Structure formats: C-alpha cells, structure tokens
Computed example of a mutant assay.
Amino acid sequence: MQYMVSKPRWMRKLYGPCIWELDTGRREAFLTFDDGPHPSLTPFVLDELAKYGAKGTFFCIGSNIERYPEIYARIRAEGHGVGNHTHDHLDGWRTANKRYYANVQQAAGLIGSRLFRPPHGHVTPFQVRRLRSRGYEFQVVMWSIMSGDFDPQTSAEQCFRNVADHLRPGSIVVLHDNDAAEANLRAALPRLLSEFSRQGYHFPAIPERLLY
C-alpha cells in the first residue's frame, strides 16, 4: 500500500484551509486515532494513554459509536478529544457532495464535535470550504505524520520509526483504532509514549475551537 508519511507543504495547500500541525510553543504533540470506537483496541489505547497522563483525539465513525456506545462514553469521560469521521467512513473524492454532507451531519448528531477529519484524507477544497461555512462550522484536521499502522506491508518497527523520525513540537500524528492497525498499534504506541515522554513531550487533546 502506498502512503506518504508526511505531505510536503505545497501539497497541503491544494486541500484548502485545513489544520496540519498545531505548534503551541511548548513541547507538545497530538496523537489522533481514526475509525473507532473498536471493542478491544480502543480500550487498549485508553489504558496506554492513561499510564502517561496523555490525551488523544479520537476521530470516530458514527456507526461504530452506535455499535459501542459504552466505549465512546469512556473516551469522553476520561477527557479525550473527539472528532467527526463521517457516519459510514465515506470517501469525499468518490461520494456525491449532498450524500457526503448528510453523512457528516448524521455522525455529528452522535459526536457533538466541530473537529472533522475526512476518511483517507480524501476531501476537495470545495468540500473543505463548505464544511467550514455557516451551518457546518467544522475545523478540518489533517495530519503532519502518517504512521502507516493500517498497512500490512508496514512492520511495527517501521510504524514506530515513521513517527519517531518525524515527530517534533506541534506534530499531529495519525494512528488507527481498527482491525487493520491492531498488531502495529499494540506494539508501537507504548514505545512512542515511553520514548517521547522521556524526552519531555506532553500529549494533549486537540482543542475543539481553533483559529487558523
């Protein structure tokens, strides 16, 4: 599977006004988890984050919240951030706009967050502008580091290195709490938390209201 660990700045500009990193002026980075809640992996992630006093931001699929409401409730109760990842993991490049926006709104009724991440990172500049407009008012959050945890051709060691070799203050890291990522995430996440906590990093949730 082909993916870019970090998109160059010229490519980021093609998407429109999205958030790719968030430098707070402190030694902070942002761990994000796409596609959950997952019945076994999301609780593992929550347990690992708790060991380091870290917070994640979980971009959830609405239909998975319906399947596992108790896990979503735990994410919120433990103070983590949440964001909208559509109701059915729709691809913005391959879905009619009307259906796409309706699916985002369906998920919004369950998630209650103004943070939005497009599945696969597939979103057009027009869709970004519409999602940010009055009536939607989403902040479209992308990433500066793709871990590759979902890729069967990426080992747990390479997943760790993809993040460790690129992480700096303000980085937004994409990880996944889904079946495809489980083996890599279980191996890489504890190492990342241990290594970068030792280096003095903190891991807050992405705030729901951002200016850019």
Results as ranks from 00 to 15, higher is better:
Tyr101Ile: 14
Tyr101Gly: 03
Tyr101Asn: 07
Ala102Asn: 11
Ala102Tyr: 04
Val104Asn: 05
Gln105Glu: 15
Gln105Asp: 14
Ala108Gln: 14
Gly109Ser: 14
Ile111Thr: 08
Ile111Pro: 02
Ile111Asp: 07
Gly112Asn: 13
Leu115Gln: 08
Leu115Phe: 11
Leu115Trp: 11
Arg117Lys: 05
His120Ala: 14
Val123His: 04
Val123Asn: 08
Thr124Leu: 15
Thr124Gln: 12
Pro125Ser: 01
Pro125Asp: 03
Phe126Tyr: 11
Phe126Met: 09
Val128Cys: 07
Val128Ser: 06
Arg130Pro: 09
Arg130Cys: 14
Leu131Gly: 02
Arg132Ser: 14
Ser133Pro: 02
Ser133Trp: 04
Arg134Leu: 04
Gly135Asp: 13
Tyr136Leu: 15
Glu137Gln: 12
Phe138Lys: 00
Gln139Asp: 12
Val140Met: 05
Val141His: 02
Met142Tyr: 05
Ile145Asn: 02
Ile145Val: 15
Ile145Tyr: 02
Ser147Val: 08
Ser147His: 10
Ser147Pro: 05
Gly148Arg: 02
Phe150Tyr: 15
Phe150Ile: 07
Phe150Gly: 02
Asp151Phe: 02
Asp151Asn: 14
Pro152Asp: 14
Pro152Asn: 04
Pro152Thr: 09
Thr154Gly: 07
Thr154Asp: 10
Ser155Glu: 12
Ala156Arg: 05
Glu157Lys: 09
Glu157Asn: 08
Glu157Phe: 06
Gln158Asp: 14
Gln158Tyr: 10
Cys159His: 00
Cys159Lys: 02
Cys159Ala: 14
Arg161Cys: 00
Asn162Arg: 02
Asn162Ile: 00
Asn162Glu: 10
Val163Ala: 08
Val163Tyr: 04
Ala164Met: 07
Ala164Gln: 12
Ala164His: 03
Leu167Lys: 05
Arg168Lys: 15
Ile172Trp: 04
Val173Pro: 01
Leu175Arg: 01
His176Asp: 12
His176Arg: 08
His176Thr: 01
Asn178Gly: 09
Asp179Phe: 00
